[in-house]
Amino acid sequence: MSRSQIVPLTPGALEDAVAGVGGELPVEQSEAWDAYDEAMPGREPAGRLAWLLDGEPQAVLALTRLRGRGFTYLWAKHGPIWLTPDTPEAERAFRRALTRSLRAAEPRAAFVRLHARHRADDLHELLQSVTFDRTVVLDLAGTADADTLLASMKKRGRRDVRKAGRNEDLVPGEETGIDADGFAELYALLEETAERDEFGIAAASQYTTMLDSLGPEHGRLFVVRDREGRPLCWGIVTVGEGLATYYYAASSHAGRRAGAPDLLVWHMAATLQAEGVRTFDLMGIDSDRAPRLTGVRDFKTKFSNEVTEVPGAWDVPLRPVLYRTLTAALAGKRRAVAAVGAARARVSGGASEEKADEQPGE
C-alpha cells in the first residue's frame, strides 16, 4: 500500500516545487500573499503543506485561516498546485490525507476550501461566496508583441479595442501606489458598479490594504480617465510567477458607453505582455456552477477565441456536524432575506430580488 502523508514546507519550498515542474504560481499561493493575510482583520497565514506519496511530492498548497461569524475555516485559494496529474483518484487521495491532517492540526476549523477539477461526493458547494470553473485566459507569451496579441482576439474584440483607442477622450494609465484618499473616487465607481450589477462589495480599506500589502510587484492598479481627469473605469491586477489575474473592476455608465473597459483590458494586457508576464486571466465567466457570471461572458470572450476550464472551489468539511449546522443556518438566513425582499416588493408594487452579498472566490 502506498504511503500517503501531509508534511509542512519550509519557506521557499512551495515556490521551488512549482518552479521545478515549470508551473505557474498564483499570487494567493505565494509568500507575497502572507502580508495581505496578516494585514486584514479576521485572517492570517495558516502554513504551507505538501502531499507526499511514497515520499514523492504530488501537490503543494498554502492555507489562509479565516474567521467568519462564529466559525473558522481554511482557504487554499487557487490551491492545491499539482506537481503530477490531478486525476480524480489523485484528488480524492489528496483530500483524504489533507482532512486527516487538518482535523488534528486545526481543531477549530469547520471546513477547508480548496480547488478541484473533478466533482466528487466529498465536495460541497460553497457555504458562502461564489466560484467559477470557466474563465478566459489571454496567452501573452504565445504572441510576439502587442500587434499579434491584438490579432489573436476575436473580430469584435479587435474592433472594440481599436474604436476605444481612437477615442481621444479616453486616457489609460497605471496608478499603482495610489493612497487611500486617491482611491476614494475610484471606490465611488465600484459602488456604482455594484448597484448596477447587483453584487456586494467590501469596504474601501480592503482594496487599498490589498494593494499596499502586495506592493507594486504583485498588486497593480490601472485606470482609464477622461481628458478632464475623471475616472471612467479601473481594474486591480494581481501578478504571480508568470500569471496575472484581473481581480477587481469597476466602471461608470459613461465609461461603459465610451468603451473605456475595452481600452482598459487592452492597456493592461499590453503592459503585462511587455513586462514578460505569460498569461492574463480575466477571472471567470458563467457555467452551470456560476450562472451569476452570465453578464460578463460576452465582454470577456471577445478578447480570446478560447474558453479555459479551471478547477472550481469547493468546501470539504472537517467537522461534518458543525458544517451541516452552518449550512442550515445560512439557508435559513437566505430564506428570511428573500421573504423580506418579497414583502417589500409587494408593498412597493415592484419586483425585488436578493442581491449577492459575496464576491467571487472570497
Rank of each mutant, 00 (worst) to 15 (best):
D34P: 00
D34W: 01
D34T: 00
A35W: 01
A35I: 00
D37G: 04
D37T: 00
E38L: 15
E38T: 14
A39V: 02
P41M: 03
P41N: 00
G42F: 02
G42I: 03
G42T: 02
R43I: 05
E44Q: 08
P45K: 01
G47D: 05
R48G: 09
R48H: 02
L49D: 01
L49V: 10
A50S: 10
A50H: 02
W51R: 01
W51I: 10
W51D: 08
L52H: 03
L52F: 07
L52A: 00
L53D: 08
G55C: 04
G55K: 07
E56T: 13
P57A: 13
P57R: 03
Q58F: 00
Q58H: 08
Q58M: 06
Q58K: 02
A59F: 00
A59M: 04
V60R: 01
V60H: 05
V60E: 02
A62C: 11
A62F: 01
A62H: 03
A62Q: 12
L63I: 07
T64L: 04
T64G: 09
T64W: 00
L66M: 13
R67A: 15
R67M: 07
G68R: 14
G68Q: 12
R69T: 14
G70Y: 11
F71N: 06
T72E: 14
W75H: 15
W75A: 07
W75D: 09
A76S: 15
A76P: 09
K77G: 01
K77V: 03
K77T: 10
H78Y: 14
H78G: 02
H78T: 06
H78A: 15
H78C: 08
G79P: 09
G79M: 02
P80K: 05
I81F: 03
I81V: 15
W82N: 00
L83K: 09
T84W: 03
P85I: 10
P85W: 09
D86R: 12
T87K: 10
T87A: 14
P88H: 11
E89K: 12
E91K: 01
R92F: 09
A93N: 05
R95E: 13
R95T: 14
R96V: 15
R96D: 15
R96S: 13
A97P: 02
A97K: 01
A97Q: 12
T99N: 06
R100E: 14
R100Y: 05
S101H: 15
L102W: 14
R103H: 06
R103T: 13
A104V: 13
A104L: 14
A104T: 13
A105W: 07
E106N: 11
P107E: 09
P107S: 09
R108E: 15
A109R: 11
A109M: 07
A109L: 06
A110F: 10
F111R: 09
R113G: 03
R113D: 04
R113T: 05
R113F: 08
L114G: 11
L114V: 09
L114P: 00
H115L: 05
H115V: 02
A116L: 12
A116N: 11
R117C: 03
R119Q: 11
A120N: 13
D121N: 13
D122L: 08
L123M: 12
L123V: 11
L123W: 10
L123K: 06
H124E: 15
E125S: 15
L126G: 09
L126R: 15
L126F: 12
L126W: 13
L126V: 10
L127D: 11
L127V: 13
L127H: 15
Q128E: 15
